[in-house]
Design a protein around this nucleic acid. Sequence first.
DNA 1: TGCTCCATGTAACACGTTACATGATTGC
DNA 2: GCAATCATGTAACGTGTTACATGGAGCA
Lengths: 177, 177
Amino acid sequence: MSLPHAVLTSLLEKSTSGYDLARRFDKSIGYFWHATHQQIYRELARMEAAGWVEGLVPPDAGKTRKKHYRVLPAGRAELARWAAEPTAPMDLRDAFTVKLRADAVLDEVDLSAELARHLALHEERLAQYRAIQQRDFPPVQARTRPEALQYMILKKGMLYEEGEIAWGREMLALLRA
Amino acid sequence: MSLPHAVLTSLLEKSTSGYDLARRFDKSIGYFWHATHQQIYRELARMEAAGWVEGLVPPDAGKTRKKHYRVLPAGRAELARWAAEPTAPMDLRDAFTVKLRADAVLDEVDLSAELARHLALHEERLAQYRAIQQRDFPPVQARTRPEALQYMILKKGMLYEEGEIAWGREMLALLRA
DNA sequence: TGCTCCATGTAACACGTTACATGATTGC
DNA sequence: GCAATCATGTAACGTGTTACATGGAGCA
């Protein structure tokens, strides 16, 4: 399980509130590790109990309940420990592919509209990635090591979306034929 | 949720026992929808209670407990119903990518050995896919519709592995630099 | 005899999802 | 004044994971 470690990573990138973290998990880090706001609040409570993070309502906060979380040394150590242990490669659970197999055995389903919808979503996400690339990254030579790593993560996302799009277009042509 | 539908699909492709189904979910359909044998036994029991499948110990079975499952009309109808409803695109939960982000903020981790291990796994799986392609598929012109769909599923898997491998090689060079 | 694999399952628990609750703040 | 959004949470439930149990079959 890695949700707490994804949260630690995101908090180290920038400390913030549970609410803002949850929004980050709807984009950014969420493109590689999805989680809902309830999961995040639950993990933050656990990690605070474990001494990995600390959540404080700033003294100048007035009536707002907004808590600011930051990673404690024990949390940083835990993240380093986890990063060094082996991981299984990602398991896929792709419902659309199962539907294609169902189509192949049933032969009474039309998946073309659904595929067209997915295709549009992938194209939109690829466009977002490209915008981030333009906005946030200096040319190759000028990149620091962290920037180079983050660029490669973005590139992985772009490769994935490009693959989905290329495959989706070919598949759509076949379904419509 | 789609596990029962993945099981129905696999059973329609070929009726069999829970044990053999579990093994299929360790390869074949399992490359797109992963599940353990406990999940499969649980789902089979539920689906039998719902009248979607029927499990019988063949009369000539002797002492073996092996049950043969087959899909009933209600199960087929349920699969068709599910296939026609919209699906969310796959959520990713890629621990290795999170580790890269952790590396970028911690700068005290060496992920190169782990990446090399993953790369080898992806290369192995790609080789498996290519062997299946050679073994099971006639040339493009001679394919039936089900064959064409199954080929596209395999192709999706190959595209994915090729992307992982290309990205992994570039990433490995960067980590070792 | 002991080992591995076949075959099905129970139990406990952790994780993920969905629905709902509460109250403050911002914008029209 | 009202609606939407901010911000945090509780509760219930369903799915996924891990550990263990049981007994037969094949084989050295």
